[in-house]
Design a protein around this nucleic acid. Structure first.
Lengths: 381, 381
DNA sequence: GGAACATGTGAATCCTGGA
DNA sequence: CTCCAGGATTCACATGTTC
């Protein structure tokens, strides 16, 4: 069955964990609102949503009750359709918010036809925008009439569930390391999905009108999820989110109404080979390294009580005490507080400020901390 | 008086036309809603609006060197709630719509804090969005805490008064000519306003916290207005819109509440020399080689996660990871850091150090980057 | 005089774990 | 929950100072 065929990353779960939910790594057929409502609350780590862009393009739009909104173009009905689109947006965003973990994040992609309405509703519902991100298309369709600028980008909104949610995943170091050691910006350049990547039906026509490039999804998933996380896509289409999630060692859940899209997505995802687990973990960050109190350096004998610490230029000197505090004049405090104090600053990272004089050379105490951490890693694994 | 001093382009009006309105090329002091309501309906060709962004900043923010970021905490950017901001937005957009000519267009600039709400209200009021345009900042402020993507762009919305308005001005040919004979795209690259262009007060502090670059306004005005047109700015600030409009042979009308901003704007605009009528062509757009993250090579499939990179002599080998970092032994870092590490150097250009082994041959990854750039080159700077 | 170095700054919704 | 404190975090320019 599709379920077992499409569950490639379940082996990533820890031994002894409970059985994975049956909906993991599957495509659920139906309306995304009711289907999300049927999932457990707080059960997914991230959501990527590519909702219908709007009715003005003649695309289909359904109200939450599944009735179809008629295409309209006069003024009153235009308001009607905006209101209907807002109601639809509100309904799926509410359901998405419920199924998201407290520290989960939501991505939505759209164009100027719909993204402003989506963003406003997101804010109204309590989502907290972290970034808006621009997908700059390397090869956008030209504007044929010459009456506007070439529409060369789409907009993504990245948001946490609440303003207060500070524990969301952002793989800052991965993004920075991959970008020539510069912070990843909010404007991303990718080609549109074409060529061999673009799914075709039997007649050679594109299987889905708005298939997104896998590179875009890869950036999204690599930046804001961890291996083994669950990524939900309520507008699954032909399954780009699922294919990329599987390749990157994440679980996926897809919701889609159209049987033809589901069929194409299942075949596509089944053909995806997950990457080896070793190539997947996010780049290490200092934040995730174990805490080492300065006292540990004293206890380990790397720094003797009574030793002198100085800053790089030797402008200030502090004396190390047996309990891991340091002293300047009568002042006794932590390496951080005292570093701030002598410089007249609010804060200071003592690890990267103070040096130990040994012989003629200065050794940054952060280097000594690194050695302690190496010892700890050898001992504890 | 300021009125006559600031009316430099009145000579552009056709011979035999009635006397120019007294508010042309002046700055009107007061609240923009009531002041726009006092202007004749259908009297301006274009509106550029840079409304308060409603930033909702929390506490203070410090750079890694502990210096304090000078935040926009002005009273005019404070709103009670999203509802209050929406009411404000609705009020000024309604007044703007009334004063706009039937074929006039409106530009609004904002960030993710406010632009979604503004765009939704614009659609609700009947404005018809022609494009959203992204101002990519060449030198944006970094994200200092490493918790989000660098916020490197702002968004502009360009809209006609009605869906039915087909006669709006869009200088397609001059935009195309300014862009190496390619259609002007919806993503524009400009530096932020700094250096000599940035207005300072007597003490040398910035005169306005959010002064926009003249190059941005020039692109806006050159693309969507004709010489002699009237450009209204309801949030005039220190008058960038007025200065650029005057220089480009357009009339302006500014509305501003703060006397200090008006004073600075009047002096600034008085010093502007209008360009000769024949020279009002669009400035060429800047182009530069796009930065290609190493991750893009992985995302593009040119380098597979798990692939091995070696230096030219095959002395060291590194494994490519899915997020665009590379690993040697337990060490995970960027191509540059790891290249430096294995050689025992301070720094290393990973692009010209690492090679991909494919078959028996070695390919420098810089060559792969060149291929990606060729693909992306059509995108422009 | 010019190169090298030091300092300042920009629309910013910018930390986290333990007691 | 709050409070407290450890300690992690920046890019492109412009301007000023030193050698």
């Amino acid at each position: 069955m599709a379920n077992s065929r499409l569950r490639p990353v379940s082996k990533l779960r820890e031994a002894g964990a409970t059985a994975p939910a049956p909906w993991l790594d599957t495509i659920i057929r139906g309306d995304c609102v009711s289907r999300m409502e049927a999932l457990p609350a707080g059960s997914v780590d991230a959501i990527f949503a590519d909702p219908p862009y709007n009715l003005q393009l003649g695309g289909e739009l359904h109200r939450p009750d599944q009735s179809r909104v008629d295409a309209v173009d006069d003024h009153w009905d235009q308001f009607e359709s905006f209101a209907a689109y807002d109601a639809f947006t509100r309904a799926w965003l509410l359901a998405a918010r419920r199924v998201l973990k407290p520290n989960g994040t939501l991505w939505v992609i759209g164009s100027y036809h719909n993204i402003f309405r989506v963003g406003a509703v997101m804010q109204d519902l309590g989502f907290w925008i972290l970034n808006d991100v621009v997908w700059r298309k390397a090869n956008p369709m030209p504007n044929f009439r010459g009456r506007r600028f070439q529409n060369a980008h789409e907009t993504l909104i990245w948001a946490s569930r609440d303003k207060e949610a500070k524990g969301y995943t952002f793989n800052y170091e991965s993004m920075k390391a991959a970008n020539d050691d510069l912070q990843m910006r909010s404007d991303w350049l990718f080609p549109i999905c074409s060529g061999a990547e673009r799914l075709k039906d039997e007649e050679g026509n594109k299987a889905h009108p708005t298939q997104k490039p896998e590179a875009l999804l890869a950036r999204v998933i690599l930046s804001s999820t961890k291996p083994g996380d669950v990524v939900l896509d309520p507008f699954f289409g032909t399954g780009t989110t699922g294919a990329v999630a599987k390749r990157l060692g994440r679980h996926f859940v897809g919701i889609e109404r159209e049987a033809a899209y589901i069929e194409a997505a299942e075949a596509r995802i089944a053909a995806v080979e997950p990457l080896a687990a070793g190539t997947l973990a996010a780049a290490p960050s200092k934040r995730s390294e174990p805490r080492v109190p300065f006292a540990s350096l004293v206890e380990a004998g790397l720094v003797q009580p009574g030793a002198e610490l100085t800053d790089a230029r030797g402008r200030w000197t502090a004396e190390v005490r047996a309990d891991g505090t340091v002293a300047v004049g009568g002042e006794v405090a932590s390496i951080h507080r005292l570093g701030a104090k002598v410089q007249g600053l609010e804060a200071c990272n003592g690890w990267t400020f103070w040096h130990l004089r040994s012989g003629g050379a200065l050794t940054l105490i952060d280097e000594l901390r690194r050695r302690v951490r190496e010892e700890l890693a050898r001992a504890g694994g």
